[in-house]
Each structure stands twice: as C-alpha cells, then as structure tokens.
Design a protein around this nucleic acid. Structure first.
Length: 172
DNA sequence: GCCCTGATTGTTCAA
DNA sequence: TTGAACAATCAGGGC
C-alpha cells in the first residue's frame, strides 16, 4: 500500500459527471474548505478494519491497470496520474463491448473472489464477536480470578479459508 | 516527513 | 432511489 490514497477526486462522483473543465476549478481549495469532511474521512479510514478485504476493481480499473503500463511505455515522461486517468477514461469509452468483455470477465472473477474473502471475513468477525461475548460471560463468572489466565483462549480460527484460488487465467 | 490531491469509471453500500 | 465512498497509481505540493 502506498499509504495516502487519493480518494479526493473520486469522492466527487457527482462532480465527476460534470465536464472536466468544470471540475478542475479550484477543486482542492474547495475541498480544503471542507476540512470537517476531511476529518470525518480520516476518522473513518482510521477506524476501518485493515483486515477487511479491499473492494474489487471494476472492469474499468482492470483495464486501467493494463493501460497504465502501456501508457507508461508510450509516455515515459508523463508521470501524472491525472493524465493516465484521463487518457484511460477516453480510451475506455472508445472501446467496444467486445473489447471490454475480457476486462469485465476479469472484474467478475475478482468480484467473486472478493465475495469469498468477505464471507471469510464476516465469519471471522462473527466468531470474534461470539468469542468476545462468551469471553464476557466467562469473565462474569470468573469475575476476579481471571487476571492471570490471559487471552490465549480466543484463538481465532484464522485461516480456515486458505484462499487457494490460484488465478486460473482463463482470459482468451 | 507525512498526508493529501488529482483524474478516471464502475461498483457497492448506506440513508 | 440516490448519492457518497472507494478501488489503483504516484509525483508534487502543503503544512
């Protein structure tokens, strides 16, 4: 992970629907004005579970991954992500349904994978919650003599979901 | 030095 | 139903 991710632009989905020229006008300033929003976002990110599976890329993002490599090769001097994003967006729109199909297939696959991971994640969460609850009731029973017992008891079932998907590259 | 921004589209989730 | 958030990327700029 690169740590700070630029969710700034994407957050303006409504704005994103507007012409680019509209959008680039003092965007950052406006956002800086919304410091409270930023704060909230920060808090949200802070409390976000790092173990939670990341959202799967959409077909466009799958395409973008590939496009970036190509774009870099063809434009080694252009480093701005905004340029890549713009170019990718234009190219994406120019693609036919047929050309988009493989990316959509990949995205679907990733999505399926994501759902699996989410399942496992949710199960883990439930198990943890249950463990906590039983732990709570246990401590209610034990009341005051547990101090020494430690937390070894709540060993989570961890990786029962080995995620052995192994990417069977089926595209064309 | 750390954190945020920009630029894009599609998907997901919450209200 | 609608709209916000987030997924990747990384140079550059602000504080």
């Amino acid at each position: 992970m690169k740590g700070a991710r630029g969710k700034g632009a994407a957050r303006n989905t409504a704005e994103a629907l507007r012409p680019a020229d509209d959008r680039k006008v003092g965007k950052r300033k406006a956002l800086v004005d919304q410091s409270s929003i930023r704060k909230a976002k920060k808090e949200r990110r802070a409390m976000k579970d790092p173990n939670k599976p990341k959202r799967p890329p959409s077909a466009f993002f799958v395409f973008l991954e590939e496009f970036r490599a190509t774009f870099k090769k063809e434009n080694p001097n252009v480093k701005a992500v905004s340029a890549v994003g713009k170019a990718a967006g234009e190219k994406w729109k120019s693609l036919s349904e047929d050309e988009k199909a493989p990316y959509e297939a990949k995205a679907a696959k990733r999505k399926a994978d994501y759902e699996k991971q989410m399942n496992a994640y949710n199960r883990k969460q439930e198990t943890a919650a249950n463990g906590e609850e039983s732990e709570k009731s246990k401590s209610e029973v034990n009341d005051e003599d547990d101090e020494a017992s430690g937390e070894e008891g709540q060993q989570q079932p961890d990786d029962e979901e080995e995620e052995e998907e192994e990417e069977d590259e089926d595209d064309d």
